[in-house]
Nucleic acid binder design. Sequence first.
RNA 1: GGUCCGGUAGUUCAGUUUGGUUAGAAUACAUGCCUGUCACGCAUGGGGUCGCGAGUUCAAGUCUCGUCCGGACCGCCA
Length: 584
Amino acid sequence: MYRTHNCGELRIKNINTEVVLSGWVQKVRKLGGMTFVDLRDRYGITQLVFNDETDADLSEKAQKLGREFVIKITGKVTERSSKNPDLPTGEIEITVNDLEILSKSEIPPFTIEENTDGGEEIRLKYRYLDLRRPNVQKGIILRHKTTREIRNFLSNKGFLEIETPFLIKSTPEGARDFVVPSRMSEGKFYALPQSPQVFKQLLMIGGYDKYFQITKCFRDEDFRADRQPEFTQIDCEMSFVERDDVLTVFEEMTKHIFKKVMNIDFPETFPRLKYDEAMEKYGSDKPDIRFEMKIHEISKSAKNKGFKIFDDAEYVGAICAEGLASYSRKQLDKLVDFVKRPQIGAKGLVYVKYNEDGTFKSSVDKFYSAEDLKTWADTLSAKPGDLILVMSGNKKETLTQLGELRLEMGDRSELRDKNKFAPLWIIDFPLFEKDEETGQLHAMHHPFTSPKISDIELLDTDPEAVKANAYDLVINGNEIGGGSIRIHNTEMQEKMFEHLGFTKEEAEEQFGFLMNAFKYGAPPHGGIAFGLDRWVALLNGSESIRDVMAFPKNNAGRDLMIDAPSEIDKQQLEDLHLTVVKKF
RNA sequence: GGUCCGGUAGUUCAGUUUGGUUAGAAUACAUGCCUGUCACGCAUGGGGUCGCGAGUUCAAGUCUCGUCCGGACCGCCA
């Protein structure tokens, strides 16, 4: 027997029990005749004690243990004479009478502790060692709890978990596909799914009216802290539902997860914000509503006062940073630098300090009187002591830039508390967005999204104005999930492909199977998919989804541990009918 | 496709601004001392292709060019 208990469970009430423990050696502390060993597993740390006077041979063996040796010990639980209140097992220790080394360890390249000394790269290379660290384990365990609760909740609601294939067909819409060459069909390729989208729609047509799946999706685009080549979606679809039916079920699921995993209650219904409104008030389609600081338009009161930049601008907008009127020149200059960074791309920034004494000091005092500035302050509900930040230009771009500035100011004022969660729904997305370069329309969500019934007439006259029956769940400025009510008839789907620039033949070739299926009695249906990795990262307070994935890849899509992707041998290439062409 | 930051001991970093003695610190590791430690303490010691290649120079960790690797971001991600 390797163990009677784990390393995190023994307490003072277990005193005098004979126990067997197995685990990893965290630390050996030698104090002359006494030796202490911290034994670790994923449940905790238990201290072992060895004494020269009791058993010199055993004590010497213990002194030769190295970090990360795997050992099994037998001993008696004893009360410590000096206790450690920082450890759950700190009141007891094990007086060891037998020690067996199960597995030796080389010296690990970094310390296996909460605060490791290892950098990102080396920890990815030795991921199996990093996984031993308690804070990494916390993320992995949190992920398990989350998926368990999702399965519980949806199963109880009558949803069926159904798998869909990974080896499917490449389609031109959306992200680049990862592609798998076929051995049996020369010169042909499978694609890995970017999402199970069409399969879940086919399941609806197949009569499985409530479906879900926790599954991998693959997208061959460039990666970020929150984007990996393979990631996990909670994919859901329902038949005979309208938008609000979907939102109700998945709002309930969201609340269930927060309750069961984090013990956080959301008594209120989640706010619903129209896309247009989100853009106007927050400059983002995924607003962080943990804090207010809404954007207000001040075009009317800012224009025609002789300040050319505002006069020429399509839009002038502002935000109010509470209590920051005391910002120094240097701090304001830094804000200007911030908005001028190429990632933000603004030309400049106007500030108005609403001083504590009620006076105003701004970078545009030459053009605006105190009354003018008071008008702005009133629009923004600014109080003395606040700082007003104004930007202008093209409306869409300026709103986005103000949105970025708003998040920056939120960070500076520490309004974005990791332990606070503010979910909301964004609804009424545009159906299409226009490619600025080619003028071609693209589906904002995906090509199977239905337009809002009230907007169907506009499809032929003003497609850009058409709103989609689509929705996103946003939490703390992260898009956690998104979905739509789908098109379920051939005519509408054909019209959609037409708008997206597909010829009839292309649509038939790419999606004929789906349009064919619509001909045989397709129920009205809709659904949603959540990004599991982002969601768990959010719950975990992590910046990066890597923290909640057991074996993540780096930002070039490489697995540093197994060294993938890699070359394959000639025979394999031949079998797959492939020739590698090297560019020089 | 682009912008920025980094690569020096097992590890995390300093040193590069202003080229010049034997490249340092912490931690980890090893040895010794230490009977209540738990970030144990003290002493001693080993440990370096300064990512790689070329160039400038009397002299390069330090300057220049190229290249590889890592990180953040923009584009991209229906």
